[in-house]
Simulated scan of single mutants.
Amino acid sequence: MVEKTGRPGYLQIADDLRSQIRTGALPPGGALPSTAQLCQRYDVSTSVVKAAISVLRTEGLIIGQQGKGVFVREGVAPAAEEPASSEVMEQLAQMRSVLADLGDRIADLEQAVFQERKRAR
C-alpha cells in the first residue's frame, strides 16, 4: 500500500518494484504483475501504476511487449553488495578531515586579512 508520506505514490511504487528487481525477487526476463494486480496490491488507480511503470521503463529496468506484459529487462543484474560500512565510514572520515582542514585554512586567511585592515586604519 502506498503511504501518505508526501512522496508521490507512483514513486513509492517504482521504488518498491526497483527494489524487487535489484534483489532478484523480480528476476531478469520475469514478468511484472499485471496492472490490475499492482492496482490492487498498492490500492491505487491505473494511472498511478502506469506512471510507476513509466519511471522504470525510462530507467531501462523493464520493457513492455505489446499484448504480453511488462518484463524485467535481460541483463539487469541484482545490485552488487554495498561497500562495507567500515569502508564508507572511513571515506566519510577522510572527507570530514579534508573539510576541517579547508575550514582552518579559510579561518587563517580571514584572520590575516582582517588584521591587515585593522592595522591600516
Rank of each mutant, 00 (worst) to 15 (best):
A31Y: 02
K50G: 05
L102Q: 12
G60I: 00
G9V: 08
A120F: 07
R119L: 11
T46R: 14
V70E: 01
F71Q: 11
T58M: 00
Q37A: 12
S34A: 09
T5K: 00
P27Q: 08
L38A: 06
G67L: 11
R18A: 04
V72K: 00
P27T: 07
L99T: 15
I13K: 00
P28C: 09
V2Q: 08
A25R: 07
F114D: 10
G30K: 03
R7P: 09
T46M: 12
A79H: 02
A120P: 04
T35W: 08
D108L: 15
G9T: 06
Q94H: 10
V113D: 09
A36V: 08
A107G: 05
P78M: 07
I106H: 06
E81D: 11
M1F: 02
P8Y: 13
L17G: 01
V98A: 13
P28E: 06
A100L: 09
V72Y: 00
R22K: 08
A31V: 09
Q66N: 06
C39F: 02
A14F: 07
Q40A: 04
R7Q: 15
E59H: 09
I53F: 05
V70P: 04
C39P: 06
T5R: 02
V88P: 01
R7K: 15
R96Q: 13
V88F: 03
E82D: 07
P27G: 08
E82G: 01
S47T: 15
E87G: 07
R121Q: 13
Q111D: 07
V76H: 00
G24K: 04
G64D: 05
T23L: 00
R121Y: 09
I53V: 15
Q115E: 13
D108N: 12
L109I: 15
E74K: 11
F114M: 12
S19N: 03
A120W: 08
A84T: 06
Q94A: 15
T23Y: 00
Q66L: 09
G6P: 12
C39Y: 01
G75W: 01
E90P: 01
G75Q: 02
D15T: 07
G69V: 13
A77Q: 12
